[in-house]
């Protein structure tokens, strides 16, 4: 869903740029709490994997394709603040190096793919984790559902931005319906990839999965020396 230059007018692009810059600034502070010597290298690899995975467009029928956005995936693996930074780095590299997504649209793309999918994905994931049994087995399915929901919501937010600052006079109802329909199907792909990747990491190293931390804390009681300072 990389928005090219020209779809949205200048005021809307400036506004999303301000939103994106603010979110990245806040995320830089928030990520400090999520990252330590152990998880920082993993976060770099998660961002790198999201970049690679976004190169894989999968067909969703009628000559249309979709690819992973990765916001929910990154949020569950390395935490929501770090996830915003992961996807923001991906989108910036794509726009500057690969001409994928417009340069004046970087703020828009960070808002849609970096903020909306992370916020929605993480919220749905935390809600499910609260409702479901307190076991590691729920992490991957909850991440998959969160990923699924995040994609059509991002599509609707794009439609909202287009309603405010779209550069072409088109039927907004048709845009909304088509965006929601296609991105619900693309969301299934997002859910499958997210579920499989999260399941793999949970199987190998549940202690590295940010979203699994409260479940591990409840499962095993470990005595640790903690330096309170």
């Amino acid at each position: 869903m990389h928005v090219p230059d020209g779809f949205l007018d200048a005021p809307t692009s400036v506004a999303t740029g301000v939103v994106a810059a603010t979110a990245v600034a806040v995320a830089l502070r928030g990520a400090r709490r999520e990252l330590d010597d152990r998880t920082a290298p993993l976060a770099g690899l998660v961002a790198t994997f999201v970049f690679a995975a976004q190169m894989i467009n999968f067909p969703v029928g009628a000559g249309t394709s979709g690819h992973l956005m990765g916001g929910a995936l990154a949020a569950v693996l390395v935490g929501p603040w770090t996830a915003v930074l992961c996807v923001s780095v991906v989108l910036t590299v794509q726009a500057l190096l690969m001409a994928d997504g417009g340069i004046t649209a970087i703020g828009t793309n960070i808002t849609l793919i970096g903020i909306v999918t992370v916020a929605v994905g993480w919220s749905v994931f935390v809600l499910l984790r609260r409702l479901l049994p307190k076991t590691l087995a729920v992490v991957a399915p909850a991440a998959a559902v969160a990923a699924f929901v995040s994609v059509p919501v991002a599509a609707l937010v794009f439609t909202g931005l287009f309603a405010v600052g779209g550069n072409a006079p088109v039927d907004l109802g048709a845009v909304a319906a088509a965006m929601l329909g296609w991105h619900t199907v693309i969301g299934i792909g997002e859910a499958v990839v997210t579920g499989l990747v999260v399941a793999s990491v949970v199987a190998a190293r549940p202690d590295l999965v940010h979203g699994a931390a409260p479940l591990i804390a409840e499962r095993e009681l470990v005595t640790r020396k903690v330096d309170v300072s």
Binding site: P59, S65, G66, V170, A174
Partner: peptide
């Protein structure tokens, strides 16, 4: 990878 337009590009084409 699929060379088809992605969801947004397809919708943009369909709705003009």
């Amino acid at each position: 990878a699929s060379a088809h337009p992605d969801g947004l590009e397809y919708v943009a084409e369909q709705t003009g």
